[in-house]
């Protein structure tokens, strides 16, 4: 469940955890639906990121992300340790889509 930066919040999103500012003060509870006014307030209040419900998958389709990964690694395939790195990143990316 990713944390969304204040700049990327959109109306209709629902908080998955309380919204806290950088001093630890709770600004908004969990399960709150974000209105444009609330989003404005959050943006003005030094918030480090907001946990949003339901947004568990990144916007890029997994096949694209993995395709990019393989393409990126094509020229270094077989070089020392690069397969280890590629596999770890692959596993990590797959994990983001679960």
């Amino acid at each position: 469940m990713p944390k969304i930066a204040a700049g990327s919040l959109e109306p209709g999103m629902k908080t998955a955890k309380p919204v806290v500012n950088t001093s630890g003060m709770v600004l908004l509870g969990e399960n709150a639906e974000l209105t444009p006014e609330l989003i404005d307030r959050i943006r003005n209040m030094e918030v480090d990121g907001v946990w949003i419900q339901g947004l568990s998958k990144p916007s890029v389709p997994m096949e694209d992300a993995l395709g990019d990964l393989d393409r990126r690694f094509r020229l270094v395939a077989g070089q020392p340790h690069m397969d280890i790195i590629r596999k770890a990143v692959r596993k990590h990316i797959e994990g983001l889509y679960e």
Binding site: D68, L69, R72, F73, L75, V76, H81, M82, I85
Partner: peptide, 15 residues
């Protein structure tokens, strides 16, 4: 590797 940002090319430097 993570595809974050752009350093001037879209490839991997070997470690």
């Amino acid at each position: 590797a993570r595809g974050f940002g752009f350093p001037g090319d879209d490839l991997m430097t070997p470690v």
